[in-house]
């Protein structure tokens, strides 16, 4: 009974709270990093060095007026932010945050569920988030959100193909679809898959930027052309849900990258005897560290690169990334057959 219900529930509560707190501070981190890149201070007023800024932001969003446009489709307008956020949150179910910990004499796995189709589960769940974006833009009954949501969904659907194809080559290397299995495969082969599949990693990161609508692919919310993107008409907490979903998706992309390419919870060079002392650091710290490094990459890119044009975005997606990902699969398969494994 305890193993079946209580522990998973506690895990879920723990992961959800953790994610929400990380999202709050990710926003602050983004503002700070962008400020430092531009030789500014960033938020400084609320708390020392602006450390309480996220709390103030959340309070502001809670008390803001919640406006529904008169001509909006009320039900869909309300449902859209929820449809965006829920898939982003439930994708965390299969992500292994660490190997396992012992608490009160019980061994608890740090993945909520180790499904044998874990990676596909993430792809499937992530593909549902597009609905919220399309419906949010459509139900606002306003032209800028509609245009932005069409852009966003075309972008998501296109880059989903490239990202899913990189997963195929990782699956070929690992021989399993389970997230825990993929990390174990990296342990057995002795190196992170970053070094086995460098091309796949690059394609995945570019696709990840596009899937999360991050700069340089933030066309769906290009302020200078579309006011505010598909959520122009949203205010208050409903806007906050869209915002939350975007940052949650960033964390998902980073944790999947950590699991697939950076050995998940494993320390660097997991098989090397000389580095065995690294195992004294708890597994979840390694995972968090790597995930934040990738998140930093996201923020760094945003502060550095200008926005793509829409035709450039589509050309890169369909004519460069997808053929490259397909070629990578073929090469991986051939090498695997030649090595006889």
């Amino acid at each position: 009974m305890i193993d079946l219900i209580v522990i998973p529930l506690l895990q879920i509560v723990f992961v959800l709270t953790g994610v929400l707190i990380v999202v709050m501070y990710l926003v602050l981190l983004e503002r700070k990093i962008q400020a430092w890149v531009q030789v500014r201070f960033g938020p400084m007023r609320v708390g020392p060095h602006g450390i309480l800024q996220p709390v103030a932001d959340v309070l502001k969003l809670f008390v803001k007026e919640d406006i529904t446009p008169v001509k909006a489709d009320k039900w869909i307008y309300t449902a859209a932010p929820i449809i965006v956020l829920v898939p982003a949150l439930i994708a965390f179910a299969v992500i292994p945050f660490g190997s396992s910990v012992s608490l009160f004499g019980k061994k608890i796995s740090l993945a909520i569920a180790d499904v044998n189709v874990g990676l596909l589960y993430i792809v499937a769940v992530a593909s549902l988030g597009v609905y919220g974006i399309i419906l949010g833009g459509w139900s606002s009954n306003s032209k800028y959100p509609l245009l932005a949501s069409l852009r966003a969904s075309a972008q998501l659907v296109s880059y989903e193909v490239a990202v899913t194809l990189t997963f195929v080559s990782v699956i070929l290397s690992a021989g399993t679809l389970s997230m825990v299995g993929i990390v174990n495969a990296q342990y057995n082969s002795g190196v992170w898959f970053l070094f086995v599949q460098p091309v796949a990693f690059v394609i995945y990161m570019i696709g990840g930027l596009a899937e999360t609508n991050r700069s340089p692919f933030d066309l769906p919310e290009a302020e200078s052309e579309l006011v505010g993107g598909f959520h122009t008409e949203y205010s208050g907490m409903r806007f906050a849900l869209f915002f939350l979903a975007e940052y949650t998706n960033m964390i998902i992309v980073s944790s999947v990258a950590t699991t697939l390419f950076f050995g998940g919870w494993l320390p660097p060079f997991p098989n090397l005897k000389a580095l065995a002392f690294l195992y004294y650091v708890p597994s979840w710290i390694w995972f968090t560290l790597k995930t934040f490094l990738i998140l930093y990459l996201f923020l760094w890119i945003r502060a550095t690169l200008p926005r793509y044009r829409y035709d450039q975005l589509m050309r890169v997606g369909w004519k460069v990334l997808i053929p490259l990902a397909l070629a990578n699969i073929v090469v991986t398969g051939v090498v695997k057959v030649l090595l006889g494994r």
Partner: peptide
């Protein structure tokens, strides 16, 4: 049949119906 379930979500719910939605909108 977890695999079939995930493929069902991926192909139908996440792929084909989005195209329907495009057409209808």
């Amino acid at each position: 049949a977890q695999f079939v379930a995930v493929i069902q979500v991926l192909v139908y719910a996440g792929g084909i119906v989005i195209l329907y939605l495009f057409v209808v909108m």
